[in-house]
């Protein structure tokens, strides 16, 4: 791509080069010079699900194992019933969620969430065992609004999609998105929270008050 003649860009870059005691661009640097340093506790593929679950729960998410894609709808319905919540929810238009959306006890709208939506179900791309984070990407099938607007954020995650570290997740995405990076990548560890009033941690600041992760086993 040829740089547009943007005088402000040239001004700032010239000032940076003055600060670096250079007059022009340097040769492209060699980077990285060594592989990333991964903490020992985060390394390895052993027991990824147990590590992911423990870390997610430590971040105040709840985690439930679901026997397979067909069991997802009943699990969602049961979770909502147990909390006395209505069965109305926004569901991501991801085909993997079609069986769940068709469940008889749920009243479903497919699409992104609006400000009035109390409950949403979406699908994460990956889980990161080190931090218990979900990795969600924006796409027509998984709009970002579902991750932030509802009070109750339900997320389906394939058990086989749990990786050890963020570096592993990036390697996956680099492979899958060689032709173009997703517009939004959200790493979500637990529900929304704040400590801004007298340092007292409260859950449910502006985003979801609850994050429930449904780990779906493959058949």
């Amino acid at each position: 791509m040829t740089a547009k003649p943007d005088p402000q860009r040239q001004n700032v870059l010239a000032a940076v080069r003055r600060g670096l005691a250079r007059t022009g661009p340097a040769a492209a640097p060699v980077w990285p010079v060594e592989p990333p340093l991964i903490p020992a506790a985060a390394r390895g593929d052993g027991d990824l699900i147990a590590r992911f679950t423990a870390a997610a729960e430590a971040a105040a998410a709840s985690v439930e194992r679901v026997a397979g894609p067909d069991a997802l709808g009943p699990a969602v319905a049961a979770w909502l019933t147990a909390r006395n919540l209505p069965g109305e929810l926004a569901v991501a238009p991801d085909p993997a969620l079609d069986p769940a959306a068709a469940h008889g006890l749920l009243t479903v709208r497919r699409g992104t969430a609006g400000p009035g939506d109390l409950i949403a179900l979406t699908r994460a791309r990956l889980g990161i065992a080190e931090t218990g984070s979900l990795l969600l990407t924006s796409s027509p099938e998984t709009p970002t609004g579902l991750n932030f607007l509802p009070d109750f954020h339900l997320v389906a995650l394939d058990a086989s999609a749990v990786v050890a570290t963020l570096e592993d997740a990036w390697a996956r995405l680099r492979q899958d998105h060689a032709g173009g990076w997703p517009r939004t990548v959200n790493l979500v560890a637990g529900p929304s929270r704040t400590g801004d009033i007298e340092q007292t941690i409260q859950l449910g600041a502006h985003g979801p008050r609850h994050l429930h992760i449904l780990l779906v086993e493959s058949r």
Partner: peptide, 23 residues
Amino acid sequence: TGQTASSYTSFSLGPRRPEDADG
């Protein structure tokens, strides 16, 4: 804050894509 990870770490690249529902 002493957290292992903050609740939300979000990466944004450009405006919404033509086929996107939000952004």
